[in-house]
Write a protein that binds this DNA or RNA. Structure first.
Lengths: 199, 199
DNA sequence: ATTATAGTTGACTGATCGGTCAAGTCAATA
DNA sequence: TATTGACTTGACCGATCAGTCAACTATAAT
């Protein structure tokens, strides 16, 4: 045919579509193959297992989200706290667009998977922890920069960054459960005002 | 044998144990029956479907959590904000005990299920939304009481209660993903200091 | 032209999925 | 004692699960 890596990419895209909109356990390899227009034999030529596919999908998903959200929000041109506000705004717009397309609030792809597999798939659990740690570092660095410039006083940047990340995930979960993007619109902006102080 | 309703209760307990520790999709009816010491035919004598079992399990789980956490924390003897602090403390101790028993941080049973099924099981999704609404009302009433007594000024009690609930769920998710109760210990107390103001 | 390699195909495996069913046990009622 | 109805049992259903495999095609290097 034309392209050798096209099949692999189609499988990754299909897995992303289906697993994000449903769940890891609900979406079978056969469904991923059907949606990708690929036979099951080809699937196992490119990926040794469903688990390995999901790991590859997560890495690609992280890069995409980093480009679409992280790299657009955490820029030096903005004051530190404004970066957090832009991040929440971009995340809201992302969910809004998905909701218009699919009719569902899908929430955070990493939070979804973390909730599902953390207790019984150590490999995927650890990969998701890595991904969360990268987002955590983005936020923590921003808070430390604000700390240094005197914008904040004596906050625990590490704990506050974790708290903001947790709040983000919680808001996404509530919006997903209510299938309502207004939840994000109303609650998420408060993320940047969360503070955890030393002692 | 001895007790007619014992079987039904054993099935409910088994489902609670297994689904809470894993997930809805991962735990099959056969596994629930094995763990309950019951044959599959008996299962379908008491429950018409796996979905109906989960609905019954959720109702029982809610009542249990309300007794163990809600009724112990939201009491008139405590000042409003102290109730929230007691709630977070009791939730932490609950997770700590489960972690010692199972070796895993299991998070919030309702959040876990909500994340898994909200996009593809409307019945369970709606039941979970009801349960969240009850917890939301508990928190909102507490905040309004604090508002009336002048402890707080001009906060949006409804939105703040939702934000606290979201934060609670997010903290539980992060602790589950890191399999570390210290996350709860460090982050959850900040729940009661979250504020969303009008306008 | 021959060979090696990458990718494709569809049939196949054993296990498990949620759910069904007829036959049976048992205690209470009539 | 006969009958009823709640409960139990184990075999069974078609569908689907993740994963395998030998045969096949197409491309590229020798």
């Amino acid at each position: 045919m034309e392209n050798t890596c096209d099949t692999r990419q189609r499988i990754l895209d299909s897995a992303r579509d289906l697993i994000y909109a449903n769940s890891y356990a609900e979406v079978g390899v056969a469904a991923i193959c059907d949606h990708a227009g690929v036979k099951k034999g080809s699937f196992y030529h490119f990926f040794p297992s469903k688990q390995e596919l999901v790991l590859a999908m997560l890495d690609a998903f992280y890069l995409d989200m980093k480009e679409r959200l992280g790299d657009k929000a955490f820029i030096d041109e903005l004051p530190p706290l404004a970066r957090l506000e832009r991040f929440t705004q971009l995340a809201y717009e992302f969910q809004l667009q998905l909701h218009q397309t699919t009719g569902m609030v899908l929430g955070c792809p990493f939070g979804n998977l973390a909730n599902e597999v953390s207790t019984h798939d150590e490999v995927i659990r650890a990969r998701l922890e890595q991904i969360f740690k990268k987002f955590h570092t983005l936020i923590r660095n921003t808070l430390e920069e604000a700390n240094d410039s005197g914008t904040l006083n004596h906050i625990n940047a590490d704990a506050t960054a974790q708290a903001m990340l947790a709040y983000f995930e919680g808001v996404m979960l509530m919006a997903k459960n209510q299938n309502n993007t207004d939840v994000i619109k109303q609650l998420l902006p408060a993320m940047s005002s969360i503070r955890i102080h030393n002692n």
